[in-house]
């Protein structure tokens, strides 16, 4: 495959051009962390291409926190405003795994979520390599590297004078074709420079997680230790806030509710899809009070089993990205790596 190179100035020129027809979001630093921020033409310098993933996942761009998914009895006329084309710059390898998981849920099967699909088709993904390893990062334990292998339209790898750029889709290819003048072919020493950085960061992540690696797959650990006491002792720390679910890039559970449409509409109703969370006590409760996951331990176990076993069985991909957001967010300080290594030992 041909690798391209683009220098910083040219890349900024390209972004400025793209800003005319797209809304662009990119990681920017606020205090210690990175957050997705909307890019403005005079804010190009604020983009952080390297470091690690943002605090929030990508999922709200595609699977909105709250979305009206049907109006009835008569379908409301489609709003005239089509959403602007969106580009995400600086998504990380773990973010891309999450998109693959969400794609399986919302794009596959007999029923398709048209809202997710529309957002997905409207969004171009320009990912980038990580340049360091966050305290809670453990991508290497879920078979990922801190640099993207698939799932991007274009990927940026920072080297001294610019980016080595890899094409991951026909849309990415198209973008390069349309802007040929700013790209050149990457030389082998550029690619080598990229690969050296990659190897070093991968090493960092591996080293940090050595202590958690018990030499078994997470699927094995979850599957073979369903009755482990650790589920109970760890769940004692859970305060049922569902922060882990909310901040998880792959958690996709939702609830549909019905309400009267807003005042500007004629009499009618709508069905709204909102994020829901399996760590809430009543998530699985039925009328009459029966609940297969009454206890926190059962819910915690379900979350892990879903990510590492059930999803893998159903879709052939692990529904955890090793981003460590749940570890960072948990007020009970429940650390997924710790839980799994304790159980797996």
């Amino acid at each position: 495959m041909v690798m391209h190179f683009i220098n910083f100035r040219n890349f900024n020129t390209l972004l400025k051009k793209l800003l005319k027809e797209n809304v662009i979001y990119a990681p920017m630093q606020i205090e210690e962390n990175l957050y997705w921020q909307r890019l403005s033409p005079d804010g190009l310098e604020n983009i952080v291409y390297g470091q690690i993933r943002t605090v929030e996942p990508l999922k709200p761009f595609l699977f909105h926190l709250k979305e009206t998914v049907a109006s009835y009895p008569t379908a409301k006329a489609k709003s005239k405003k089509t959403p602007p084309k969106t580009i995400i710059v600086g998504a990380k390898a773990c973010d891309l795994r999450a998109l693959a998981v969400l794609d399986d849920v919302f794009k596959e099967g007999d029923f398709k979520d048209l809202f997710y699909i529309a957002n997905r088709e409207n969004t171009l993904i320009i990912s980038s390599d990580c340049s360091s390893c966050g305290e809670t990062c453990f991508c290497c334990l879920v078979d990922l590297t801190p640099y993207p292998a698939t799932g991007f339209d274009l990927n940026l790898s920072r080297i001294a004078d610019g980016f080595v750029l890899e094409v991951g889709s026909s849309r990415g290819e198209q973008l390069i074709k349309e802007n040929e003048f700013v790209f050149q072919e990457a030389s082998s020493h550029m690619v080598k420079e990229r690969d050296d950085v990659r190897a070093e960061v991968l090493n960092q992540v591996k080293k940090q997680n050595e202590e958690y690696d018990v030499g078994k797959s997470y699927q094995e650990i979850v599957k073979n230790n369903f009755q482990s006491e650790v589920w109970k002792t760890e769940a004692e720390k859970c305060v049922e806030c569902a922060a882990c679910n909310q901040v998880c890039p792959t958690c996709y559970c939702f609830l549909l509710y019905d309400q009267a449409s807003g005042a500007e509409q004629t009499a009618g109703y709508e069905k709204v899809r909102v994020w829901d969370a399996c760590q809430y006590p009543k998530f699985s409760q039925v009328a009459g009070g029966a609940n297969p996951r009454k206890r926190r331990a059962e819910r915690l176990r379900h979350r892990y089993a879903h990510k590492f076993d059930y999803f893998l069985e159903n879709f052939d991909i692990v529904a955890c990205t090793g981003c460590g957001r749940c570890i960072q967010a948990c007020p009970g300080k429940i650390d997924m790596r710790e839980v799994l290594s304790k159980i797996g030992k």
Partner: peptide, 14 residues
């Protein structure tokens, strides 16, 4: 089981 979407997406009935 508790259900919301009915179409294998929302996770409630797992």
């Amino acid at each position: 089981k508790n259900m919301s979407c009915g179409i294998g997406k929302c996770g409630h009935c797992m």
